[in-house]
Nucleic acid binder design. Sequence first.
DNA 1: CATGAATGAGGCTTCATTCAT
DNA 2: AATGAATGAAGCCTCATTCAT
Lengths: 203, 203, 203, 203
Amino acid sequence: MAQLSPQPKADKRIRIINAAVDVIAEKGYHYARISDIAKRAAVADGTIYLYFKNKEAILLSIFEEKMTDLIVLVRAEISNISGPKEQLMGFIHQHFLLVQENPALARVLQIELRQSSRFIHDYRPESLWAYLRIVVEIIEAGQKEGVFRRDIDPFIFQWSLFGALDELSVQWILSKKRERFPLEQVVHQVSSVFLSGLTITQE
Amino acid sequence: MAQLSPQPKADKRIRIINAAVDVIAEKGYHYARISDIAKRAAVADGTIYLYFKNKEAILLSIFEEKMTDLIVLVRAEISNISGPKEQLMGFIHQHFLLVQENPALARVLQIELRQSSRFIHDYRPESLWAYLRIVVEIIEAGQKEGVFRRDIDPFIFQWSLFGALDELSVQWILSKKRERFPLEQVVHQVSSVFLSGLTITQE
Amino acid sequence: MAQLSPQPKADKRIRIINAAVDVIAEKGYHYARISDIAKRAAVADGTIYLYFKNKEAILLSIFEEKMTDLIVLVRAEISNISGPKEQLMGFIHQHFLLVQENPALARVLQIELRQSSRFIHDYRPESLWAYLRIVVEIIEAGQKEGVFRRDIDPFIFQWSLFGALDELSVQWILSKKRERFPLEQVVHQVSSVFLSGLTITQE
Amino acid sequence: MAQLSPQPKADKRIRIINAAVDVIAEKGYHYARISDIAKRAAVADGTIYLYFKNKEAILLSIFEEKMTDLIVLVRAEISNISGPKEQLMGFIHQHFLLVQENPALARVLQIELRQSSRFIHDYRPESLWAYLRIVVEIIEAGQKEGVFRRDIDPFIFQWSLFGALDELSVQWILSKKRERFPLEQVVHQVSSVFLSGLTITQE
DNA sequence: CATGAATGAGGCTTCATTCAT
DNA sequence: AATGAATGAAGCCTCATTCAT
């Protein structure tokens, strides 16, 4: 039995995850069939169950693993930037950059994930919190440095910002004519509003 | 034969819609069974199909009808307020008030609706746009009056604000300990950030 | 309440029967809905159950009543003809004439009736036998007169003839291009074959 | 674990087809439940859908596949016979033989098949035409040889004969007391009538 | 580890029939 | 007698999951 699989080996789990991202992004979680994912991953249906407990576990694994990657990536980018305002802009920039470069993943993480009742009801999305912790840290640093208003609650702010980024991303993903909707401009506008709202006004 | 039905003629259609809101909010669209909705509405399963073409039509009807109500309500409230800043605060206030008073409906409108593939793929959520048009009108008025920054794109702003309101609502709905999360404070914080971000700084 | 119904009155039963013939001919027995029949008859769904026990009873009533009419009609025609050969030709002619003039009824009697499991399994189609008795009587008369072969079993002959008439009618009804398939020629051919087969050859 | 399944690998598809023939013959197409067929075939309900697109496809497959078999069989028999008259008798004989040996199949092919609206409306029953082509070929050969009357239209004749065979088969199948109705005699009578009707009379 | 044929639970929907008016 | 809104039983079909090979 020679090497037949296009990719080396052992990556079967990764192939399944990536296939799942694509298929779920295309059809939606509830309309994505295991057999679709298996076919795209070029494995047998049953093989999926060697790597994942069930369909929902795939979704949660996507979330866990991709978010972990993203956090590492974003943290790395942020660490090269100095100044809380600049870091927050960097975060916003990175977020949209990732959306732009991984629209399928973005769609799964932002829309489809919420289809899992476990995700909504029981699951504690630690990874999402870890992602947003980046924002909180920037804000708290800015507040300590006296750059950001102390009366802003970082907890509420993080969800406001995330909600805005999320919704704009969704609208961008769903948008038929994305050219009318350049992400660079979105980055600029969002940064402008949130930073103005956050920054202490020198009066 | 005493009067048993709580609402003698309270139209079955309304009963079904409200039952659907409750059940879908509880279990999620895909896990809400038609028979659950029928039972909650105290009608036979088949009766639902006298009023709605199919399951998805219930979801879309909820959206259409409830959004129409909301728009009327919010517009009425806004019309009593003068000044763009105050109106925007009023809008934010109203949004969270409605969420607080109709958590099940809020959940359906904000989370479950997105489960319908038709909603995502084909459907044009005119009602949502009509709702957000309220925001756009306030902003454009403020820009004309010179109260709001002209460089803010109302289109992007509306989605930022909506995203923030939406996400905070969701978090509030999902939040086990809502007391730690008083909506009044959320209103204050969000208004503060978005208004500061939007308002022209007098320097 | 003035006279509103287009037809005098009391004819509701007849209206239903005729509506049923049309609808069943169009859609087939199992795909014809009671509500379709009711609509075509311009009565309420429930009204049908004042005249018929259930859906199957409509089908059987169509059979009973229409066959009774047909038998009277055909017998009347035959009685004007003398000579067994001429009478048999007359019967064949009448059969196709009726098919041609009442294609919907023909379809129901010949195709759709067999959809009723009761018709197939329990029901004794006396009316059909009465119809075919006309054939048997002609044959037996012919045999007595020495015109028809005595070795022909009228019982088997009646079904042969009926099968041939039936099948040709069905093919004619189903035929898209009935012009290629003129019933007059069919009458001629069928009469020719069956009469030659039946008549004593003068050798 | 002894051998339990009667036909180890006797392809499930064949088991399903045969089960469907039995169940449909017994209860009629519209009253035959998929679960009945599955039970009789000793497979799960879902398994049927691995082999057939839907219920109607089972019926059409029965028709296609069984007719193909029948045509081969009948052609083989006919090819051993010389002389158009003898061949036509052979055809009639074979037809009733097959009915006698496969009453369930005969019932499905002759009665139940017509329940499928697709069969009636859209479907072109090529296989049936192929079956009847055997008759047409015999007649045309006989006409060429001068044995059969030239004024007989083979197209009309084929349907007459088929209708007669069909109706007699149905009556035989439905007949409670088949002994009163011996197929050998039916063969003889039908052959006699149709051959006399078809053969050129030597006067 | 891998396969993929087989399973079978379960839901949406239809529509004949009922019954309060 | 007539209505037609309401009923609810029942079936086709899907698809996540299993398991013999």
